[in-house]
Design a protein around this nucleic acid. Structure first.
Lengths: 162, 162, 162, 162
DNA sequence: AATGAATGAGTTTTCATTCAT
DNA sequence: AATGAATGAAAACTCATTCAT
């Protein structure tokens, strides 16, 4: 907490003025980014595009978030171990909401014949897993820009569902 | 350390008899699984199969490891933060060796015209990310067997490279 | 301090406008109640009554204070640990003054033959202890009124000195 | 906790090896003394004595504990504010058990005509309050021995119930 | 006269590690 | 080879107090 406070040019005490405890701080960070991401991806779902283009756009959006918000976007592999009962439930709910947008896009594609798979949820988890893994290796000093990365991801990953 | 020892039906002290410290313990766990996985995936590379079938088999192998060795196989998102200089180097080397087997399979497929992509490494990272994400959601009590999961993964993910 | 301020429908800052620090606040609370109690019990001493009736009246007075001013009247078990040198001395002096009124009533009773004990001070401490303990168990929603309680206390406790 | 550990010639860490947290430590201290006191006072109840002598003996016993175990015996004025739900319940139960022994002695005295009061519980609370107040003023360097004090208390306080 | 934000020193708690036996 | 007890450094957390506005 001291280090986080220092990074924000505040003191530990100031941080505790705004957040009940460490868990609460982490919770709100995730909440914030997740809420933004939901809005952004939901927009893709409702645009007037083919299902494939919707998915590609959603992938690009997610990759951009994953790169920009490296630390908070998907850090928490096991939310069950990070959050206590109080905060776990709304967090899981919100995560599920986010996932379900991808599910909806995929389902649309299946229904209109664009996509050719049966396992919607597993496909969605492949997509999210592949994208979240970016934080493993991506670093800003690398040779590729965010835009190049997200273009490659949308091109390659969208093949999973076709 | 206490919890780990308890899980192994030993005491903390006994654990320290066998491992220098916590880092050392984690290192050896990963070392062990990674070494086995390298052997198994290397076998796929050298079998007399098409590149696509080699990749599919490698995917199935990795998925099996990921499910069986949930805790150790890919826990470490950022080895730089887990290992100190001494152990970081060999660990990164071994990880790289593992990754390079997948790279080799993909490169073969590109060279012989089976695969139709240009970004070998990014494709490989998509595959690994998608597969490692399994530990996020897979649980033994689920409705699908390990075999079903790995079949779906090899079918869907191999489409990335084609 | 936050909680105290909230109870008073003010903010912490406002509290510090009126009191130098926490100790000062506590000091003034006690000062206030103790001053009132001294006046009230002194009146009992000077009334034209038998010593027994004086004592009974003093007991009733104290019990009423103890119930009404639950939080401040006798909270401080060890003033030495609560107050610093500056405030400890006047506080102890005032406490002693309060105690000495009870001592005076008891002494009068001994002198005029109404009471039949030798240990004035110990008897006084028994009385005060027994009465102050009320805050332990008394709660407003209980079945007994303040008046009933103080009647029982004056009846039973006055037997100590006879 | 540091200070407590130092007093015991241990380190903070050692204290936490034996007690879950500060509350747990306090709980066990009280538990221990209260258990001993229950045994000791229960003995008074079952001895072959008049009710008055039983009560006097119980008073002497309690006073001895109050003086010897100054810090733990009755420090906690409001257990509700010290203990959390888990430990509050057993603590209140044990406190109640202790109180009920005094109630039993008093009730016996009422039943056999030795005592002449109607308010058993209030009388008991007067006794306990008067006795516990001892810690307010008693100090080892004082002029009176533990035995003298307890003799005076048993003589004076037993008059409450007669 | 009052406030919200911030501080920092102190306290509690955790946990990897050590060590005598 | 193994253990229970103990350590200490670091982390989380609290809270009386200050201060610019």
């Amino acid at each position: 907490m001291e280090d986080i406070a220092a990074e924000l040019l505040m003191t530990k005490g100031a941080l505790y003025y705004y957040f009940k405890n460490k868990e609460d701080l982490i919770y709100h960070c995730h909440e914030l980014v997740l809420t933004q991401a939901i809005v952004a991806v939901e927009q893709c779902l409702h645009e007037d595009l083919s299902s494939l283009d919707k998915l590609k756009k959603a992938i690009e959006t997610h990759v951009n978030f994953a790169i920009s918000e490296k630390e908070t976007f998907n850090l928490i592999i096991k939310p069950e171990q990070t959050f206590s009962a109080d905060q776990l439930h709304p967090m899981l709910k919100k995560r599920h909401k986010y996932a379900s947008i991808f599910d909806a896009i995929i389902q649309q594609g299946i229904d209109n014949g664009e996509f050719n798979i049966t396992e919607t949820k597993i496909a969605r988890m492949m997509l999210l897993g592949a994208m979240n893994w970016i934080q493993q290796w991506y670093n800003l000093e690398g040779e590729r820009t965010k835009e190049e990365i997200s273009a490659i991801y949308s091109e390659y990953l969208s093949k999973i569902v076709t």
